[in-house]
Amino acid sequence: MKSPHRTGEAQAGWLFVSPALTLIGVFFFVPIVVGLTLSLTDFDIYAIGDPSTARFVRLANYAHMASDREFWGALRNTLYYVLVGGPLSVLASLGTALLVNARLARFKGLFRVVFFAPVVTTLVAVAIVWRYLYHPRYGLIDAGLARLGLPVVDWLGDPAWALPAIILFAVWKNFGYNMLIFVAGLQNIPDELYEAARMDGAGAWARFRHVTLPTLGPTFLFVGVITMIGQFQLFAEPYVMTQGGPLRSTVSLIMLMYEQGFRWWRMGYAAAIAFVLLILVLAGTAVQLALRRGERA
């Protein structure tokens, strides 16, 4: 039986979602699909004035990519950043979450706010702050290292250290977010599980290993996926801190896309780079889902 309320409700439902869906469709989903088409053309600065000058070039952009050393460098840098920075950031978050959530800890709310503060700061602004902190002569980080009798490092000036320095900065900037998510996950673990483990004579490490870690499984998956997606978007840090240098050692895929697309207006090629990035992100997500499923089986 269909009541008048029901039909009114269905109409209202579509009416309520349509403004948001239209905007998301036009400004998010459609551009992604158009981007795929764009990556098969030689769309350039002339085509911006007159789109009819763009030609369909099939996979030429992707073929060019295969022989482009800039692209392979950016890919290498991005994967380094994701594969080293991601796990490091997750570990920092988990460690802090365990501390903040420790039964003994007091002022939990205060510490949570302090650790979360860098997350809400403006990336560009704090990247500039860190650029000065990393200064080899006047930076506080090297001053601290020197005081401790440790060797100083030209953090952003040495091609071997620039990317690790950016990773360190990004861990500082982001660990608070995942920390909160881990705290939420930890609070969801029933106390009885720990009690039972304690009764069985499990020590602190055994309880962590056999109770905390397994029950945090879904949280790990969530954190892993969102962290990876975030890491793949590396852009503002190198843009502000190193301009991609020294020796192009900090150019990321998004930065290359930005340079090719909006500085040189090679939009076809830039769209192809964006698509490779999308495939990497989706593959990375699929791998994490599969790993998680394998663990559970």
Binding site: I24, V26, F27, F28, F29, V30, P31, I32, V34, G35, L38, I48, V225, I229, F232, Q233, F235, I254, M257, G261, F262, M267, A270, A271, A274, F275, L277, L278, V281, L282, T285
Partner: peptide, 17 residues
């Protein structure tokens, strides 16, 4: 599904829009 897609992916066409 869209949650897993970084917004930068569609930025070139978005600029044209």
């Amino acid at each position: 599904v869209g949650l897993a897609v970084p917004s930068q992916i569609g930025m070139l066409p978005l600029f044209l829009v």
